[in-house]
């Protein structure tokens, strides 16, 4: 479903701030794969998401989604294949627009926008039903401005928007990291539900090793812009946090346990 081949991406090339974010990254996802992604700061996790979504173009390598080569496709054209939820709850929704208007924008992802009404009556009913799944009471607040919602509510709404038009690929970039533990669990639960329901091919970055183990059928670890650990199936199910930590220390060549990875 997703094919990353030998991707290189360098920021500020030729300056003192040069940063090789992706260093020959290759990754292949089968349809229906739910892959959790871990790695330390600067390992290239977010850059990987951003080159897949088209926010950055790659220096070298190729990207294809569902057999379509999207390497040179601009961000807004790739959006027809990709649903995204960002780390920052402010980033995935339009604060000055209503809940239903935000959803209506998401429903039209990938189709041509013309002079037809931006939202229809039938849609509203559909949105009400979908918002009920989130169990946040948003179904009664369709015309509320999104700016009035809490971070968790906005993130849940973004999740709904990302999956409203079933995407070929769902990208979750630490989408629960900015939320309090209770809300984070709720959003993660809704995420799991929707992914199972629609059999979505998913890449989920997380800082939390327990979440990385508990969710998905496959786990990868990035280090220095490359995939260094890749486990799936039975092996992943038996994985423990301690083993994962040991693997992490092994590849990063340091013995200090990264508390942040374990605790956050």
């Amino acid at each position: 479903m997703l094919e990353l081949k030998n991707i290189y991406k360098t920021f500020n090339a030729g300056t003192v701030n040069e940063k090789k974010a992706l260093n020959g990254l290759s990754l292949s996802l089968k349809e229906g794969d739910f892959v959790t992604v871990i790695g330390g700061n600067g390992a290239g996790k977010s850059t990987m998401m951003n080159v897949i979504s088209g926010a950055y173009l790659v220096d070298e390598g190729s990207i294809s989604i569902g057999g379509v080569d999207v390497t040179r496709l601009p961000e807004h054209k790739r959006a027809q294949y990709i649903g995204r939820v960002f780390q920052d709850p402010m980033m995935g929704t339009a604060a000055t627009m209503q809940i239903e208007e935000n959803l209506a924008l998401a429903l039209r992802r990938g189709s041509r926008r013309g002079l037809k009404p931006g939202i229809t009556k039938a849609e509203r009913e559909q949105y009400k039903e979908l918002l009920k799944i989130l169990d946040l009471g948003l179904e009664e607040r369709l015309t509320s401005k999104v700016g009035l919602l809490s971070g968790g509510q906005r993130q849940a709404l973004t999740l709904l928007m990302a999956t409203l038009k079933q995407p070929k690929l769902l990208l979750l970039d630490e989408h629960t990291a900015a939320l309090d533990p209770k809300t984070a669990a709720k959003v993660l639960n809704a995420t799991e539900q929707i992914i199972q329901r629609d059999h979505l091919t998913t890449l989920m970055i997380t800082h939390n090793m327990r979440d990385a183990i508990a969710h998905g059928n496959r786990l990868i670890m990035l280090y220095d812009g490359r995939v260094v650990v890749d486990v799936e199936g039975e092996e992943k199910r038996r994985l423990t946090v301690e083993q994962l930590l040991a693997k992490f220390n092994q590849v990063s060549g340091s013995s200090e346990a990264d508390d942040k990875l374990l605790l956050s």
């Binding site: 960002f86 980033m91 339009a94 039209r108 990302a162």
Partner: peptide, 11 residues
């Protein structure tokens, strides 16, 4: 309102 979000929704 939000250019990032707009592009993510294919605008």
């Amino acid at each position: 309102a939000n250019r990032n979000m707009a592009r993510a929704q294919g605008i």
